[in-house]
Design a protein around this nucleic acid. Structure first.
Length: 954
RNA sequence: GGGCGACUAGCUCAGUUGGUUAGAGCGUUCCCCUCACACGGGAGAGGUCCAAGGUUCAAGUCCUUGGUCGCCCACCA
C-alpha cells in the first residue's frame, strides 16, 4: 500500500473516482428478494430540464444521509431515482430554442414538435443524473424512471381510466385560471398571488328611465379594479338588503362605451361595506361573477382572446392588449365624465407560477378531478398519524389545505405530456375512453393501444383524441407506486410499497405530497393487489418536510434572479463532502437555511482534519512496521472487531474513555438521524472526531504508538485504528467520499461485508453470463454502522478522564496567563483532599506532564503556598505554578474577585431556592440533591478564592 | 382577512419533553509554523436569550399581549 498521502485533502480526484466506482459497480442496487427490515424512499423527481441547484443538493444530502445510514444498519435499502417530464417547463425550453431558429411549434405540428422535445431530452435531459452521480447520491440507478416512459404512461392511463369510470374525472365548461403567455389552463396552486398597489375606479353607469333612455343625472356608481372587463358586463349587482339601492333592483343601467342596457340585480354576494356597494357583473372574466351569472342566468360575454388581447366582442377596443385597453377605456370614460374617482388600491394579483404573467380568469372546457372523495381518506391517515408529518406544524397546514380543497383542473393545452385517453365522436359528440390501459410503442414512445374505433352511442367512426395533456403533477402523484411497476403487482411493489419515507421541500406539500397521499390511498385499493388495509395503501409512512435554502433577503434561491448558487462550482472549490456537511449541519428541522461561506470553510477544514488524522496514522505506522508488525496484524477487520485491547490486564483509562465515548456518540447520532435532526448528528460527530479523537486521544497515545514496548504499542495501534475505522463509518453518511477513500487504505477482507457479497452474487445472476460485468468495489457504504455498545459504556472512565483534562487545561491556562515560553517545561504543585484524585493523577502522571508541558508534579493533600505563584482551583483540586516575579498581582486579584462575585451570586440564588420549602417538596429529589452538591462545590471554590485574594493582597 | 415561523455572543446559527455557571462555527484578543494538519495547536474575551405581563418550587424553553422581519394560504369587486 502506498503511504504517500498529500498534506491537504484534494477532493476532486477522489470524488470522481469513487462516484464512478459506485455507479459502475451498481453498489446501491436494492434486493427485492431477501428477508429483514427494509427501507425505501423515492427521489422527488427533478425536472428533466434542470440542473442541480443548491436546493436539490440539500434535499439529496438529507436523503442520502438517511439512505446510507439505513443501508449500513443492514436494512435492505432502496432509493429510487428518476426524472419528471415537467410539462410546461420543458415545452418552454424547447420552444425558446426553436424561436432562435425562427420556428414556432405550430409550424412543426404536434408530432414533429414532440419528436423535437424527445430529441432534446435525449441530448440534454441527463445532466442532472450525471450531477447526482458525481455528488454521490447513493440511488439505485438500475431502477431509474422517467414520468413519460411507457411503463409510467401505462400507470397514468390506468389511473385516469379508473378515475373516469368512477366519475371522479369529469369534463366541463368552467372558469379556470388561464395563462395568456403559456396559453393553457393552470391549477389554483400554480397561481401565485402578489400584493400590488393598483387603482380602483368608481365608474358611473347611467340609469335607464321608464322611457328607456339613459339618465344624465341618475347613476349607479360601481367600483372596479379591472375597467377593461366592463365591456363584458351583463349586469350590475347590489346586496338585496341594501336600502340605498333596493329600489333600483329590476331596473336597467346603460353599460357605458358599449351602450348596452343591462339589468340591476340583487345578490347576497355583494358586500355593502366595500366600495360603493354596487358591483359590475362580468361572468366571463371573474370567478365570483361567473357564479352570480349562473344564479341569475346572465349571458357570458368573453371579451378577450387566449393570448390576452381584446376580441371582437370588445367592439372598438378589439385587438388591444388587455392592459392597454384598460388605459384607453379609462381615458374614454373620463372624457364622458363617467369616472367619479380613482384611488390607490392594494390587492392581490394572480400570476403564473411558471412565466409570471398575470393570470386571466377565463371560461373554458377543461378536465377536472374531484377532490372531496379523495381528500377525506387522506385527512384521516394524516390525522391518525398513519402518515407521520415532521415537523408537526406542517401537519396542520396540510390538514387545513385538505379541508378547503377544490376540484383540480388537470388538463393543459400543451403538447408535451400525457395525452388524455379520451376520444370525441365527430358524429354525436360522445366521449369515448380508451378501452384499457395497454400501451403500444410508436417511434420509441408510448401511445394508448386500445383506441376505440367506433362510437358506442351513434356507431360513428369519426373519433378524434382529446388534444389536451395532463398536468405534470398528475403523473407525479403516482410516482411512489408507478415507479415500482404499478398497475402490475410486481415484486418491487410488494417489497417496497408503501415507501418508508418521503423527504420533500415544504414548497411542494400541496402540489405533490398531498396528491400522492390522496392518489395512493385511492388507487392502491385495487382488489387484485390485496391491499385493502389503508396502512398498506399510503404512499409513505413518514413525511419529512425539509427547509428551503434562501438568500440573505429570505427569497428562495433562483437562477433566473441570479441568486442561485451552483453546487458543482462549490463542490470543485471546497469538495462535495464539505458542501454536504455544511448543508446537513445547518438543516435543523423547521428553519430555512441561509448559505454561509464561513460554514462551508469550516466544513472543508473538517474534511482536511479527517484527512490529516489519517495521514498521522499512516505516516507513523512505518515506525512500528519497522519492528516487523504489519498493518494486517493491527487493523484487519477481525482485529478491529475485538478492540479495545489492553497491554496489561485491563484496558487503559484513556482507551476505556474513548470506547465509551464512541458508544454514546453512536447512540446520539442514531437518535438524531431517527428524528431528522441532521444538524445534531453532524455536530455530535464533529466534536467526537475533532475534540475527543484528535485533540485528546491521538495526543494522549502518541508515546505509546512510538513505544519500544511492543505489547503497549500493539495495543495502542490496534485501538486507535479501530476507533478511527469506527469514526469513518460514523462519518460516512454525511461525508461519503473522504471516508470511502480512507477506509480503503485499511486492510479489508474480500467481500468486505455480507451485503457486498450478496451484491456480487446477484450481479452475476443478473448478468446471466456467470461473468461479472464490473466487480462491486468493497465499500465502506456496505460496512456496519457503529452501534451503541453497553460493554464499552463506562461512566467512571469518562469522569476520570474529564478530571485529568481539567488538570491539563488548568496547567495550560496558568502557563498562557504567565506567558511562559510554550516549549519550557515547568514544575507544578498539585493538591487534592480526595485520595482517589491523587491516585488517579499519579497513575496518569505521564500524559498530564506531557500535555500540560510540566517538568514535574508534586502531589499532596495540603494547602498550596500562593506566594510567587499562580494557582488554579476547582472544587476537587488546586494546581500551582511558581514563576517568581512574572506574576501580575493586581490582575490576579481582579480576576479572582470577578470570579468570587459570580460564585457569590450563584450560591446566594441557589441557597435561597434550597431554603424554599415548596422547592424541596415539589422539585424532584434528584434536582434538589444535585443543587446541594453544586452549592457545596461552589462554596469550596469560593473559600479557596477568598483565601487567595487575602494572601495576595497582603 | 386567516395561518405559520423567526428574533439567543460582532456575524451565521444550535438549544429534544421547563431543572447545575445558555452552546457551536466564523470573526476577535494573546501565544505558538512543536516532527498529522496554519484548512493547524494552546489559552482567553464576548450574551439582563425582542419587550411587557402571567403560570410554576423553577422559564431561553409554557401561556397572553405587543413589536420587528420573513413565509404560506385566501374568489371581496
Amino acid at each position: 500500500m502506498a503511504r504517500e498521502i498529500p498534506k491537504a485533502y484534494e477532493p476532486n480526484e477522489v470524488e470522481q473516482r469513487w462516484a464512478k466506482a459506485w455507479y459502475d459497480g451498481k453498489l446501491f442496487r436494492a434486493e427485492n428478494s431477501a428477508y429483514g427490515p427494509r427501507f425505501s424512499i423515492a427521489l422527488p423527481p427533478p425536472n428533466v430540464t434542470g440542473s442541480i441547484h443548491i436546493g436539490h443538493m440539500l434535499e439529496h444530502t438529507q436523503i442520502d444521509m438517511l439512505v446510507r445510514w439505513h443501508r449500513m444498519c443492514g436494512h435492505r435499502t432502496l432509493w429510487l431515482p428518476g426524472m419528471d417530464h415537467a410539462g410546461i417547463a420543458t415545452q418552454f425550453v424547447v420552444e425558446r430554442m426553436l424561436a432562435k431558429e425562427g420556428v414556432r411549434r405550430q409550424d412543426l405540428g404536434r408530432e414533429e414538435f414532440e419528436r423535437r422535445v424527445w430529441k432534446w431530452k435525449q441530448e440534454s435531459g441527463g445532466v442532472i443524473k450525471q450531477q447526482m452521480i458525481r455528488l454521490g447520491a447513493s440511488c439505485d440507478w438500475t431502477r431509474e424512471r422517467f414520468t413519460l416512459e411507457p411503463a409510467l404512461y401505462r400507470a397514468v392511463l390506468h389511473a385516469f381510466l379508473r378515475f373516469y369510470r368512477e366519475g371522479l374525472i369529469y369534463r366541463g365548461r368552467y372558469m379556470v385560471n388561464w395563462c395568456p403567455r403559456c396559453q393553457t389552463a393552470i391549477s389554483d396552486l400554480e397561481v401565485v398571488h402578489h400584493e400590488r398597489t393598483g387603482e380602483i375606479w368608481n365608474i358611473r353607469y347611467p340609469l335607464i328611465d321608464s322611457t328607456g333612455t339613459p339618465s344624465t343625472t341618475e347613476f349607479l356608481v360601481v367600483a372596479t379594479t379591472r375597467p377593461e372587463t366592463m365591456l363584458g358586463d351583463t349586469a350590475v349587482a347590489v346586496n338585496p338588503h341594501d336600502d340605498r339601492y333596493r329600489r333600483f333592483v329590476g331596473r336597467k343601467v346603460l353599460l357605458p362605451l358599449m351602450n348596452r342596457q343591462i339589468p340591476v340585480i340583487a345578490d347576497p354576494y355583494v358586500d355593502r361595506e366595500f366600495g360603493t356597494g354596487v358591483v359590475k357583473i362580468t361572468p366571463a372574466h371573474d370567478p365570483n361573477d361567473f357564479e352570480v351569472g349562473k344564479r341569475h342566468n346572465l349571458p357570458e360575454i368573453d371579451v378577450m382572446t387566449e393570448t390576452g388581447l381584446m376580441n371582437q366582442a370588445a367592439g372598438p377596443y378589439a385587438g388591444l392588449e388587455r392592459f392597454a385597453a384598460r388605459g384607453r377605456i379609462v381615458e374614454d370614460l373620463k372624457n364622458l365624465g363617467l369616472v367619479e374617482s380613482v384611488k390607490e388600491h392594494v390587492h392581490a394579483v394572480g400570476t403564473c407560477d411558471r412565466c409570471k404573467a398575470i393570470v386571466e380568469p377565463r371560461i373554458s372546457t377543461q378536465w377536472f378531478l374531484k377532490m372531496l372523495p379523495l381528500a377525506e381518506p387522506a385527512k384521516q391517515v394524516v390525522r391518525e398519524g398513519l402518515i407521520e408529518v415532521v415537523p408537526d406544524n406542517q401537519r396542520t397546514i396540510l390538514l387545513n389545505w385538505l379541508d378547503n380543497i377544490r376540484d383540480w383542473c388537470i388538463s393543459r393545452q400543451l403538447w408535451w405530456g400525457h395525452r388524455i385517453p379520451i376520444w370525441h365522436c365527430g358524429g354525436c359528440g360522445e366521449m369515448v375512453p380508451a378501452r384499457d390501459s395497454q400501451v403500444r410503442i410508436v417511434d420509441g414512445h408510448a401511445r394508448a393501444a386500445s383506441v376505440p374505433s367506433k362510437c358506442p352511442k351513434c356507431g360513428g367512426s369519426n373519433l378524434t383524441q382529446d388534444p389536451d395533456v395532463l398536468d405534470t403533477w398528475f403523473s407525479s402523484g403516482l410516482w411512489p407506486f408507478s415507479t415500482l411497476g404499478w398497475p402490475d403487482e410486481t415484486k418491487d411493489l410488494k417489497e417496497f410499497y408503501p415507501t418508508s419515507l418521503l423527504i420533500s421541500g415544504y414548497d411542494i406539500l400541496f402540489f405533490w405530497d398531498a396528491r400522492m397521499i390522496m392518489m395512493g390511498i385511492h388507487l392502491m385499493a385495487d382488489p387484485s393487489l390485496l391491499t385493502g388495509d389503508v396502512s398498506q395503501r399510503i404512499p409513505f409512512r413518514q413525511l419529512y418536510l425539509h427547509s428551503l435554502v434562501r438568500t440573505a433577503e429570505g427569497a428562495k434561491m433562483s437562477k433566473t434572479k441570479g441568486t442561485g448558487v451552483d453546487p458543482l462550482q462549490m463542490t470543485e472549490q471546497y469538495g462535495t463532502d464539505a458542501l454536504r456537511y455544511m448543508l446537513a449541519s445547518m438543516a435543523a428541522p423547521g428553519t430555512d437555511i441561509i448559505l454561509s461561506e464561513d460554514r462551508l470553510l469550516s466544513a472543508r477544514a473538517f474534511a482536511n482534519k479527517i484527512w490529516n488524522a489519517a495521514r498521522f496514522l499512516f505516516v507513523n505506522l512505518e515506525k512500528i512496521e519497522a519492528h516487523g508488525v504489519s498493518l494486517e496484524q493491527l487493523a484487519a477487520p477481525e482485529v478491529r472487531a475485538k478492540a479495545p485491547y489492553a497491554s496489561n490486564r485491563r484496558a487503559a483509562l484513556v482507551d476505556r474513555w474513548m470506547f465509551s465515548r464512541l458508544s454514546s456518540v453512536s447512540a446520539q447520532v442514531s437518535d438524531a438521524l431517527t428524528g431528522f435532526r441532521f444538524h445534531e448528528a453532524c455536530q455530535t460527530i464533529y466534536h467526537f472526531f475533532w475534540g475527543d479523537f484528535c485533540d485528546w486521544y491521538i495526543e494522549w497515545l502518541k508515546p505509546q504508538l512510538a513505544s519500544e514496548d511492543r505489547a503497549a504499542a500493539m495495543a495502542a495501534w490496534r485501538n486507535i485504528l479501530a476507533v478511527f475505522d469506527a469514526a469513518l463509518r460514523l462519518l460516512h453518511p454525511v461525508m461519503p467520499f473522504i471516508t470511502e477513500e480512507l477506509w480503503h487504505r485499511f486492510p479489508q477482507r474480500a467481500g468486505a461485508s455480507r451485503v457486498a457479497a450478496e451484491a456480487l452474487a446477484s450481479s452475476e445472476l443478473a448478468d446471466g453470463t456467470g461473468r461479472r460485468t464490473a466487480p462491486p468495489p468493497l465499500s465502506i457504504a456496505l460496512a456496519d454502522y457503529p452501534q451503541p455498545n453497553s460493554d464499552w459504556s463506562d461512566g467512571g472512565a469518562e469522569a476520570e478522564l474529564t478530571l485529568l483534562q481539567e488538570i491539563i487545561i488548568a496547567a495550560r491556562n496558568i502557563r498562557a496567563e504567565m506567558k511562559i515560553d510554550p516549549k519550557k517545561k515547568v514544575p507544578a504543585d498539585f493538591s487534592s483532599t480526595d485520595a482517589n484524585v491523587r491516585t488517579l493523577v499519579e497513575a496518569n502522571i505521564e500524559p498530564v506532564l506531557r500535555l500540560g508541558t510540566l517538568s514535574g508534579l508534586n502531589v499532596s493533600a495540603g494547602r498550596l503556598d500562593p506566594a510567587g505563584a499562580v494557582i488554579r482551583s476547582t472544587a476537587r483540586f488546586d494546581l500551582r505554578i511558581a514563576y517568581g516575579e512574572a506574576i501580575d498581582k493586581s490582575a490576579e486579584i481582579a480576576k479572582a474577585k470577578k470570579e468570587i462575585e459570580r460564585l457569590e451570586k450563584d450560591i446566594t440564588s441557589k441557597e435561597a431556592r434550597l431554603a424554599d420549602r415548596s422547592f424541596r417538596s415539589k422539585a424532584p429529589p434528584e434536582v434538589v440533591r444535585n443543587m446541594e452538591k453544586t452549592v457545596a462545590e461552589r462554596k469550596t471554590e469560593l473559600a479557596k478564592l477568598r483565601a487567595r485574594v487575602a494572601e495576595l493582597g497582603s
